[in-house]
Write a protein that binds this DNA or RNA. Sequence first.
DNA 1: ATATACTTGGTTATTTTTGACAAATTTAAA
DNA 2: TTTAAATTTGTCAAAAATAACCAAGTATAT
Lengths: 107, 107
Amino acid sequence: MERFGEYIRKLRVEKGLNQTQLAAKIGLDSGGLSKIETGKKDLKEDKISLLAEVFEVSIEEIKTQYFSEKFAKDCFKYKCPETVFQLAEQKVKYIKNINTKQAQIKF
Amino acid sequence: MERFGEYIRKLRVEKGLNQTQLAAKIGLDSGGLSKIETGKKDLKEDKISLLAEVFEVSIEEIKTQYFSEKFAKDCFKYKCPETVFQLAEQKVKYIKNINTKQAQIKF
DNA sequence: ATATACTTGGTTATTTTTGACAAATTTAAA
DNA sequence: TTTAAATTTGTCAAAAATAACCAAGTATAT
């Protein structure tokens, strides 16, 4: 199992970049990137697409890593039952469903 | 499938409270509670235990409803793959595991 | 019509995140 | 070791996101 920061660091090193170089590409300084790689700070969502470009991986892949980390941290922090993820998945389906129906009604 | 706001409203009505009454018990005004019930605003985490008391349900139950809603909303909003929840669940286990090991080392 | 409950919008306050900078630490090389 | 490069860490101000507050609006029921 790999944390988000480790994942980013792995890709960065694979690309032969140091923190200062990658940081510049995504609008951060090296200190900020360091904190992200070591899990001391969270990346802002709007950096996700930049990372996908730089690393040449899909946005979906980055999002999966990014949000799974976010959800897991919250779940751990607030000691919430792990069954929460089952329900969350159902809810997303429900929301999407509702949403497409409403979109249809508009015409 | 039930959204968090609907869940709260259902419990509130079951207890025979109006919004003003429940809002007072958890440190909100009626407008704020209305927004929560209709999904226009999110409840702050620190209200969870108060709700559990008032409604006489377990904190785990409320947390499950609360965080599944939160995660699902984020997932929908950012269009992230639903597989994110699988990974999130694994990560929580991993984090917990790491954490207990580190706790042990301290002595 | 009046009263009660609920919704909504706008404004301010508060809290949380973020980004920038600088100092300190680590790592590697000469 | 000394030097240089890379990374980590702490602090602080700016920015963004949240929440509280209040008033006006709508709906519902008596």
